[in-house]
Design a protein around this nucleic acid. Structure first.
Ligand code: MN
Ligand code: MN
Ligand code: ZN
Ligand code: ZN
Lengths: 137, 137
DNA sequence: TTATATTTGCAACACAATTGCATTTAATTG
DNA sequence: CAATTAAATGCAATTGTGTTGCAAATATAA
């Protein structure tokens, strides 16, 4: 599992399992803390940092208050991340989804601007919440 | 100037003038502090907060470390902001630009996802830095 | 099993964000 | 213009997150 040059520990396994259960859902550090029975704030902090630099997790900027993390693609490694997909924050339930399949369209920058990186944060209502809403009406 | 239900004070005027000098450039709180001869950190903090909630400034998420602020459109008000344009962070000079004129192309979300808001953070090399680079080569 | 390097847990620190409150100031009114 | 009122300011204090140091515990390698 973590032949990303990371040692296997039970703590890291617990954390990683939370992400593997819902591969396309991003979790914040406080999300993770809520699901752990016992945890050390600093160890979790360093775990996330290790995972990100190892290419296991990537930071998911969703435009919300707190930073979230999500599973990387298979081909991510310590030297290069490859997670340039949009992230979707649901304003109802607060969940953040990795939209791997949504292609970021190209667009025209002003003259002499050179594009190197894009971060697309979308917010709205997710499919799950949308179904609930339409059922209640 | 601030008939956004904000009182006119010399401090607020100083801050607002910095934004009016370069209407399309976003400034961080530390940027502003550098340009003020004397300031109170907390007052500046509250000034920014007032400006944002009054519809004078909007937060410009550029993917960089620090939060920046930029002038709102004319039609922004306390109840609704209307600043859904991309922001461009130059990796050379660190400047952040509001790309008012760049149209965000529409794209297809997964089924049952309802889009309410988009934040597009672009980074690269700005026109100013690009000109310098090409001159030196 | 032993040796070595990494990880963990706890304390401590740095720093930005936030609040309380008395004082000052701006706008309003007579 | 003077008095009144509500908002803004400045300073102290608090909170909370991010971060580091270090000794003890643990995972991997030999
Ligand atoms: Mn993602
Ligand atoms: Mn802007
Ligand atoms: Zn939802
Ligand atoms: Zn530049």
């Amino acid at each position: 599992m973590q032949r990303h040059h990371l040692r296997h520990t039970s703590f890291r396994e617990q954390v990683l399992l939370m992400f593997l259960e819902n591969p396309k859902i991003a979790l914040s550090q406080s999300n993770i803390e809520s699901s752990l029975e016992a945890f050390d704030r600093i160890t979790l902090y360093r775990t996330m940092k290790s995972f990100v630099s190892a290419g296991v997790l990537h930071k998911a900027i969703d435009g919300g208050e707190e930073l979230k993390y999500a599973l990387c693609h298979e081909d991510c490694n310590p030297s290069q991340h490859n997670d340039d997909h949009p992230h979707f924050l649901c304003q109802k339930c607060g969940s953040t989804y990795c939209l791997d399949d949504v292609h970021i369209p190209s667009f025209q920058l002003p003259d002499n601007y050179k594009l190197l990186d894009i971060q697309l944060a979308i917010s709205g209502i997710c499919d799950r919440c949308n179904v609930h809403l339409t059922c209640n009406l």
